[in-house]
Simulated assay, not measured.
Amino acid sequence: MTDFTVEERAARPWVGVSTTGELAHWGRVNAHVPTIYAALAEAGGIPLGGPIYQYRRLRTATEPMDLTVSVPVSACMEIGDGFETGEIPAGRYLVARPEGGPDILDRVHAEMWTWAGEHGLDLAIDERADGIHWHARTEQFLTDPESEPDRSKWAIEVTYLLR
Rank of each mutant, 00 (worst) to 15 (best):
A90C: 04
T35Y: 01
E84S: 10
H32K: 10
L40E: 03
H109W: 09
E127P: 07
W134Y: 15
W134A: 06
A75N: 07
M112S: 14
V108H: 01
T85L: 08
L94R: 02
F4L: 14
T68K: 10
V108G: 04
V73I: 14
R92M: 09
P102G: 15
V29R: 02
D106H: 09
E157P: 00
F4C: 09
Y160D: 09
K153S: 12
F141E: 10
W115G: 03
S152Y: 00
R163S: 08
R56F: 04
R137M: 09
I125N: 06
S147R: 11
D130H: 11
Y93V: 00
G80M: 04
P13V: 01
D81S: 13
L67M: 15
A39S: 08
V158S: 01
V108I: 13
V15K: 04
G117Q: 10
V15C: 11
G86R: 02
T2V: 14
I104Q: 05
S70Y: 03
M1F: 05
A124W: 01
E139G: 02
V108S: 04
G131D: 13
A43S: 09
T85I: 03
E111D: 08
W154K: 08
T60Q: 11
E99Q: 13
G101A: 06
E78Q: 11
D130N: 11
R9E: 06
P98Y: 03
Y37I: 06
T68P: 02
D106W: 02
Y53M: 11
E8W: 00
P72K: 09
T2M: 10
R137I: 05
E148P: 00
T68H: 11
H135R: 15
M65R: 12
R9M: 15
P145M: 13
V73K: 06
R28T: 10
C76A: 14
R28F: 05
D126L: 08
P51N: 12
E78N: 12
L162N: 08
E84T: 09
L23V: 13
G80E: 04
H119P: 09
E78M: 05
E146T: 09
A24I: 01
P51D: 07
K153N: 12
R12C: 14
Q54Y: 12
L67T: 11
A43Y: 03
P98S: 05
P13K: 01
E118A: 09
V15Y: 08
L105A: 01
E111P: 07
A38R: 14
I79G: 12
M77P: 01
D144F: 00
V73Q: 05
E8G: 07
H25Y: 09
S18Q: 14
A61N: 12
R137C: 11
I132T: 15
P34G: 08
P34L: 01
L123C: 05
A136G: 07
W26R: 08
E63A: 14
D3K: 10
R128P: 04
E127V: 15
N30P: 00
